[in-house]
Structure formats: C-alpha cells, structure tokens
C-alpha cells in the first residue's frame, strides 16, 4: 500500500516539477509570438532607437533600457554599502538580545508589497527630492532612492545569511591569533562568504531591475535619455505598466511585448549568474 502511495507521490511531484519548466517555456513562447510583429518590423533598431512616439509609430526602447539600468545602478550604489553594513552588524556586532528582533524586522520589511514603497515614495520622497534638488520631484533620482530602500532589507537579510555561514571555528582561529573583531570581519568572514554575498547582491539587482510598482508612481514614464537625474524618466516595467491599456495599434502592442521579452531575458540572465555562478555551494568540510 505504502509503496503505491510512494509511487503516486513521486509521479505527482515529477509532473509538477516538469510543469514548471513547461510553464517557463510557455511564457517565453507567448512573449516571443506576440513580439514577432515588432521584431520583424523594427529589427535591431528597437534597442538603439531613442524615440518612443506611438502616435508616429516610432518605438525605440533605448530610453526605457537606459532608465532601467540607471535607476537600478543608483539603487545598488545606495543600497549595497548600507546593506553590507547592516549585515555585518547583525551577524557579528549586534548583542544577542538585538540580533533576533532586528533580524526579524528586516525580514518583515523585505516582505512589504512594493506598491506600498511606491505610494510612500510618491507622498514622502517626491516632495523631499523636489525641495532638496529641485525639479518636479518625479525623477530618475527619486526612483533610484525608492528602489534602494525597497531592496535594502532583502539585500541585508540575504547578505547576513551568507555571512552567517562562516564556521565559528574559523573565526575563533583568527581570534586565537590575536585578531580583533574587525580583522575577523574583513579577513575571514567577508572572504569566506564572498561568493554568497555577491550572489545575494545580484539577486537583489535582479529584483530591482524588474521592479514595477515601487517606481511607477515616482518615475514619470517620460521616454527621454538625460544625464540630469532630477528629470522624469521611464524604465521597461514602468512603460509596460503605464502603456498596455492604451496600446492602440498592433505594432504598439507588439513592441510592448518585445519590451517584456527583453526584461525577461535580462532578469533571467542576472538570476542565472547569481544562482549558478555565485550561489552554488562548493565549500566542504568544517
């Protein structure tokens, strides 16, 4: 009897596992199908053209790509040092009494739906940025800041987890040679956990680049490429969120699908690098 149950269970789980693969393939195919019109009509120009003017049937994705890259880059620059600092504090410096409550709060922050960060950004950060650096406050800079705040808890939590994998006995060995807490952090923990830390940072980057709701409100969806970070801009997900409902022509519709295909490929690549290159556990022993 139990052998039969085992078999049923094994087959069901295998079916579900394979379905997941098929689902990914299916999504990819659907996106590709819907993008075909735009791919054949626009070709490579799609990613190099800087003008996005649906009424003139001009669909250049470069401003959205630029916006995605720059806002993510800003978010990473702001979030990485803070996240690493928080992770070091939580894993090595915080007194035992604080470790758990602070750690749990950070995990809770990481679970806040991104639309909440978006609204918070719109009502609190937009005015602050407007007052501090001018402009209308809806800008690339605001998007970068809100994104960084959104990914910070996730980044800090996973970085802390990576640091926590350092075996106690390894740290003790460095203390036993006369190392200070700081010596042990920089010479032992960070090098030991390096791959895990970088992997975590890249996973966070993957989240930032595909993030929609946190930035839709604060970025402005203006298709322009500018070095001035106080001007409104757009990103791939922001364009998608704003324009799908108004896509009037077939080509417009198809080019939006091509944008999402592009985003899928970028995210997929980033996550693969993180997972297969950095987060694969190869250390043995200890």
């Amino acid at each position: 009897m139990s052998i039969i149950l085992d078999k049923i269970f094994a087959h069901t789980s295998k079916f579900i596992a394979v379905s997941i693969l098929l689902l990914v393939a299916w999504i990819f195919t659907v996106l590709l199908q819907h993008s075909m019109e735009s791919i054949t009509a626009l070709g490579f120009d799609f990613v190099t053209e800087t003008k996005w003017a649906p009424n003139l049937e001009k669909f250049g994705a470069l401003p959205a790509i630029y916006g995605s890259v720059v806002s993510t880059f800003l978010a990473m620059i702001l979030a990485v040092p803070l996240a690493i600092g928080v992770a070091i504090y939580l894993s090595e410096l915080a007194p035992a009494k604080l470790k758990t409550p602070v750690g749990v709060s950070i995990e809770l922050l990481a679970a806040i739906p991104s639309v909440v960060y978006g609204m918070w950004g719109l009502f609190y950060f937009v005015p602050i940025v407007r007052d501090l650096v001018g402009g209308i406050g809806i800008s690339m800079l605001t998007a970068g800041i809100v994104l960084s705040i959104m990914i910070l808890p996730f980044m800090a939590a996973v970085t802390r987890d990576a640091m926590d994998t350092t075996p106690d006995i390894l740290k003790e060995s460095a203390y036993a040679l006369g190392g200070t807490r700081w010596d042990v952090i920089k010479d032992i923990i960070i090098p030991y956990a390096k791959a895990g830390i970088i992997g975590s940072l890249i996973l966070a980057l993957g989240r930032a680049i595909g993030e929609t709701m946190a930035v839709t409100f604060v970025m402005g969806n203006v298709h322009q490429i500018s070095m001035d970070l106080t001007l409104p801009a757009t990103s791939i997900p922001v364009t998608l969120a704003n324009e799908f409902t108004e896509a009037s022509s077939g080509l417009y519709y198809s080019s939006l699908f091509q944008l999402s295909l592009l985003l899928l490929v970028i995210s997929f690549t980033i996550i693969s690098i993180a997972k297969f290159y950095f987060l694969r556990r190869k250390r043995v022993g200890l």
Binding site: I169, E172, S173, L177, G179, D187, I188, P191
Partner: peptide, 20 residues
C-alpha cells in the same frame, strides 16, 4: 586579550585554513 592570544596560541579539532 590580543596580546595574551599572541603569547598563547591554539590549534583546533578540525583544520581551519583561512580562505587565502
């Protein structure tokens, strides 16, 4: 303690090569 541990060293149960 830093000075003490320089004068009194320790070898552990398992080898603990540093990641370097």
């Amino acid at each position: 303690l830093i000075n003490l541990r320089i004068q009194i060293g320790m070898i552990f149960q398992k080898p603990t090569a540093f990641p370097m």
